[in-house]
Design a binder for these strands. Structure first.
Lengths: 188, 188
DNA sequence: GTCTATAGGCTGATAGAC
DNA sequence: GTCTATCAGCCTATAGAC
């Protein structure tokens, strides 16, 4: 049984995905839920609160996932593979609100924006460290620029949610295998 | 010497990049240009027109670029490399308005939206064909899923504009070399 | 080509009846 | 917890003086 608030968050995430945060009005959300706009305010305090309650759980899931990976006993290259798995898992858990990760998080305000940015920076730093360890242990080519590879892998992982929607013909297990290959081993 | 319209498009693209199309008001644009909002309407007919005049040239540049590559005498794998070069080139030419390619194009309306979607679909189809040719000629691993590789490469290329802003320490030539390596040859 | 004034509508959010 | 009514402010866009 879903609470009203959960329904609101669910419908809002679908609309944000389709039209963006700024392009979605509180009235749009109310209509999707099936009530008048004013009624929403019995469950939420502002439109901004909805955005925060959608963004923050994802952000925390990634942070915790990265901590688990960093502290694991996997070798650095296996850690890269684990990061790919983490993104697939989180993307599956937060299907609609994942779109916020690619762009709409910029509409976060105040402390939430700061927290989100810090968390993201932290995540990227851990990722960077793992890439550097891979180089040190000769698990990846030392001539590869860490920043370029970090960005190219992360871009693909961030956009996974939008691709997944259009390609459900491929199983999660196969997707995971293919993505690890494409992103880490290349096409050859 | 820049015309008024060029100035408007330039300032609008910077704002769209920062706050998104829906999050940017005509007043914001006017203020950036240094006039009152009403004055803009001597040069443009609507906010939507600005979006279209920013999106369409990029779209056309990609379409033409892809035609040139497809019709060239390069082998299929060299064509993949040429696509990477094309994206770097277009990203450099349209620094600010490139952000529209990743998300804000959904706010295009009417015929412009249709044209944009069709052009994008076409581009992806050509890309797909090149990947298939690579497989046929044994230039890339036949076990690689075309859709997964297409999406992962394109995601990285689309986000290049946002990464480039923060990483100007690396030269365009080096970036091109590194990106081709990361996206096509992998990390090893 | 700029401005002021203004239209008409939508925005997020609140007050208070039921 | 829903509704109607309402608010003040902002939105895109137009009219018309200069």
């Amino acid at each position: 049984m879903k609470t009203s608030k959960e329904t609101i968050l669910k419908e809002a995430s679908k609309l944000f995905r389709k039209k963006g945060y700024a392009g979605t009005s509180v009235q749009d959300i109310a209509q999707a839920v099936g009530v008048k706009a004013a009624s929403l305010y019995n469950h939420i305090s502002s439109k901004q609160e909805i955005l925060q309650e959608l963004c923050m759980p994802i952000s925390r899931q990634f942070s915790q996932g990265m901590i688990d990976i960093s502290e694991s006993t996997l070798n650095p290259f296996e850690k890269l593979q684990a990061i790919v798995s983490l993104h697939i898992k989180v993307t599956q858990s937060f299907t609609d609100s994942m779109s916020l990760i690619t762009g709409d998080w910029i509409h976060l305000e105040g402390g939430a924006l700061k927290e989100y940015k810090a968390s993201r920076k932290n995540y990227e730093q851990s990722f960077r460290t793992i890439l550097e360890h891979c180089k040190k242990e000769n698990l990846i080519d030392k001539n590869i620029n860490t920043e370029v590879s970090l960005f190219s892998i992360l871009s693909s992982l961030h956009w996974l949610y939008s691709w997944r929607e259009r390609h459900q013909e491929i199983s999660s297990i196969e997707l995971e295998k293919q993505l690890k290959n494409c992103l880490l081993n290349g096409l050859k």
